[in-house]
Amino acid sequence: MSKTTKTFTIKLSQTLLVSVCAIGFTIGANAAPAVGTNANTIAKSSPVFLGNGGDYPFSEAVRIGNTLYLSGQIGFKEGKLVKGGIKTETKQTLDNINATLLKYGYQKSDVVKCMAMLTDMDDFDDFNKVYQAEMAKPYPARSAFSVSELAAGASVEVECIAAK
């Protein structure tokens, strides 16, 4: 494939992605609200902000209805990033997620979506080995992204959504 064709294909793909997202947001914004048993009553659950980020400006998790949105976790233990590389960091990250889930009455089996951020995509296979060992089938939906840097020099950060 020529460089011009490749550039055109990338730009076209980006344009299509933006268009599809815009359509999705428009449809979602104009969707009919959920209604309770009475057609005049709109069923709404206010967010409950749980825990805190200590010195940082974020909540540990937010619950809306039966859905729990967790802030991203890194491989911190006792206030420090664990040593030992991507496998050790991933294990500690998932342990931290599990502890947060349990703290708010959820389990790993309630996780429906995770987003993983890695500073080096060469670590993807090692990350997956630990993730597969720690999470059970059926696995949650998941995205993985390469990022240039994470807080505290971490190699991996994972955020999840759980629902009951």
Results as ranks from 00 to 15, higher is better:
M1V: 03
M1H: 00
M1L: 08
T4E: 12
T5A: 15
K6V: 12
T9L: 12
I10M: 11
L12Q: 15
L16P: 01
L17K: 01
C21P: 03
A22P: 08
A22W: 01
I23G: 01
G24H: 09
T26P: 10
G28P: 01
G28H: 09
N38L: 13
A39T: 14
N40D: 15
A43M: 10
P47G: 00
V48E: 03
V48W: 04
F49R: 03
N52K: 01
G53Y: 05
G54Y: 03
G54H: 04
E60F: 00
A61D: 06
I64V: 10
T67E: 03
T67M: 09
L68K: 03
Y69F: 11
L70H: 04
L70E: 09
G72I: 00
Q73Y: 03
I74E: 05
K80H: 06
K80N: 07
L81F: 08
G84I: 05
Q92W: 07
T93I: 05
N96A: 02
A99N: 12
T100N: 05
L101P: 10
Q107R: 13
S109Q: 07
V111S: 10
M115N: 14
L118G: 13
D120H: 05
D123S: 12
D126I: 08
F127L: 06
K129L: 13
K129E: 12
Q132N: 11
A133L: 12
A136R: 15
A136G: 07
A141N: 13
R142P: 04
R142E: 12
A144D: 07
L150I: 14
A152D: 14
A154H: 09
S155V: 14
V158Q: 05
I161W: 02
I161H: 08
